[in-house]
């Protein structure tokens, strides 16, 4: 199908973009990489009167590190994140995850800001952001707001962004020497949206977790920062602790049934991922036995 008619405008400064969003409100849609918006327009799931193309706001393209924070501009494309030396060094979880996001031709256009603003519950980046305790920076004419990633995602395709706000960047605390990460997703094909996935970031203290942040995706209406992690922190992990954590995890999950997988399968796969994650991060093959439990 073809998109219905709209008017198109391409501001060249952030201030102009924010003024346009303030003026048109709900009648406008921000166009970034277009890799989620254009399908929605072509399928006529969305029919805005105005498209505000932010592709010309080159200030938003930068990836940089300063004062312990990796800042990724909203217009950094998936391929830029994938190839960034700063990302590889300071937030390698993102590079691990990005290879699972769509396909090369889509990664050449899709942007970090668009991906996070789109808030697909099966999407990798939102889960990485909650695992990495990122801050999402949004701006309107009224000023800037800084939101914890876990407060930003509020439902299926729903975020805390207001119509007149632009997501401008995401800020991630840089990984330290004891940081380890895990990423794995179950998908039918390379590049497809996940059936269930886990992006995790942890701090090790000897053979234990000093901290463990588990970002599950495709397990509910938004990425889940699993509180089940508390069963695994501060002491050497035993099979009994892992079993307790798996049970706690299952209680937190609220997966959807869709053509990809029924609810029970998603819950099962999430438990498997938790065991795989803990066994991998601690180098404890014995705990992987919990996968088939």
């Amino acid at each position: 199908m073809k998109a219905s008619a709209f008017s198109y405008i391409r501001p060249t400064t952030i201030d102009d973009a924010l003024a346009l969003l303030a003026q048109y409100g709900e009648q406008a849609k921000v166009l970034s990489g277009g890799q989620s918006l254009m399908p929605a327009l072509n399928l006529r799931l969305s029919a805005p009167e105005w498209l505000v193309d932010i592709g010309g706001l080159s200030d938003l393209r930068t990836i940089a590190v300063s004062r312990g924070l990796l800042r990724i501009g909203a217009l950094a494309r998936h391929v830029d994140v994938l190839k960034s030396a700063d990302v590889a060094e300071h937030a390698p979880l993102l590079a691990d995850a990005m290879v699972h996001v769509a396909h090369p031709a889509i990664r050449n256009k899709g942007t970090m800001g668009g991906n996070l603003a789109h808030a697909d519950p099966a999407s990798e980046m939102p889960a990485c952001m909650i695992a990495l305790d990122a801050v999402i920076v949004v701006r309107s004419r009224a000023g800037e707001r800084r939101l914890q990633a876990r407060d930003f995602f509020i439902g299926i395709y729903e975020t805390a962004l207001a119509a007149e706000e632009l997501l401008v960047a995401v800020e991630i605390p840089v990984a330290n020497q004891n940081s380890v990460r895990f990423f794995h997703e179950y998908a039918r094909r390379n590049g497809d949206y996940a059936i269930v996935g886990l992006a995790a970031s942890a701090t090790l203290d000897g053979g234990s977790f000093a901290d463990l942040r588990l970002g599950f995706f495709a397990v509910g209406d938004r990425p889940l920062l699993a509180t089940a992690a508390r069963h695994l922190i501060g002491r050497p992990v035993t099979a009994a602790m892992l079993a307790e954590a798996q049970a706690a995890l299952e209680a937190e999950l609220d997966p959807q049934e869709d053509q990809q997988a029924p609810v029970a399968m998603r819950k099962h796969l999430a438990r498997q991922l938790l065991a795989l994650c803990v066994a991998t991060l601690l180098g404890r093959a014995d705990l992987e036995a919990r996968r088939s439990a």
Binding site: M38, N42, P104, I106, K109
Partner: peptide, 22 residues
């Protein structure tokens, strides 16, 4: 809507979906 790849072209050297670009 971006899933089949039949419309792949090169824009400024990068392959992209021509159906997802205005």
């Amino acid at each position: 809507h971006g899933v089949c790849g039949a419309c792949t072209v090169r824009v400024d050297g990068d392959i992209v979906r021509a159906c997802l670009l205005l």
